[in-house]
Amino acid sequence: MNNLGLIISFLVIGAGLLWFLLRALQGKEVERRIIFVFIGLAVSVPILFSITFAEKASPIVKAVYDKIENLPDGSRVLISYDYGPSMAPEVEPMSNAFLRHSLAKGHKVYLMGLWATGQSIAATAIDSVVRREFPEKVYGVDFVNLGYKAGNQGVLNVIITDIRKMYLTDVGGIDLDSLPIMDGIKSLRNMNLLMSVGGGFPGIKEWIQFAGDPGHIPVAGGSAAVSAPLLYPYYPTQLLGLLGGIKGAAEYEAELKRHYPQFADTPQPGIKMMGPQTLAHLVIMAFIIIGNISFFVARRRRG
């Protein structure tokens, strides 16, 4: 049913665009209402039929995926929740995907936040992702929520040498030394991978400057689309990979789904949001091309 809807709507949109391309070759303009109809279709069809596109991870996203994939089982992975509710729709899919992937691979996951709001978002992630999808994982053994500490990059400056100078207990007040997951963890240097998800200050940039670089620890990140361009100069030397905006999230979700069949039914908000975006983009670009063709044809005719 879905496939039928998809094929029909693609045929309609494709044939329509082709028709207007042919008209453009005769120098004819497209009426604006036609464009509106195409945009309407391009956005509503993917919503109605839950059309998603095969996303292919770009190298910068694939780098993050490969890193988690290639770490030996039982490696230590830290995920920092550096965002608040307003940024959540865009970056929460990323932190959830990181969390899923790390747990599925059997890594030990340490959650924390440089943003005060990150602490409760991390707690939500434990409820909605870990407890639901990985009921066998044990708190304190396979994962832990360290919570938020005030001090922005100052926190990193301290925990790069000694985590316990900042964190004596986890978020629930349990002594860190009583948690098996903390055995042998003295500082961030004992982590195999640091991941920061966010899009403001403090965020990925601070993780690079105050933890990754001084400690020679690999840093990966997920960032809102607005701030992603500012992080590209760090890739690939200081930042091993980056998920930028909904697109990055979708690519990662797709990569995860391809290799882990058990995630076939988990929600993929990133991929879902990309459907209408992609189609609308294509339609707009098609019309820009059509517009230019009819413009040049008409100009040549006029002499």
Partner: peptide, 16 residues
């Protein structure tokens, strides 16, 4: 805006 951004792009983005 989603509609208007498309029609504006069609109308104005020409190599004039």
């Amino acid at each position: 805006l989603a509609f208007f951004i498309a029609s504006a792009a069609y109308r104005a983005f020409r190599a004039r």
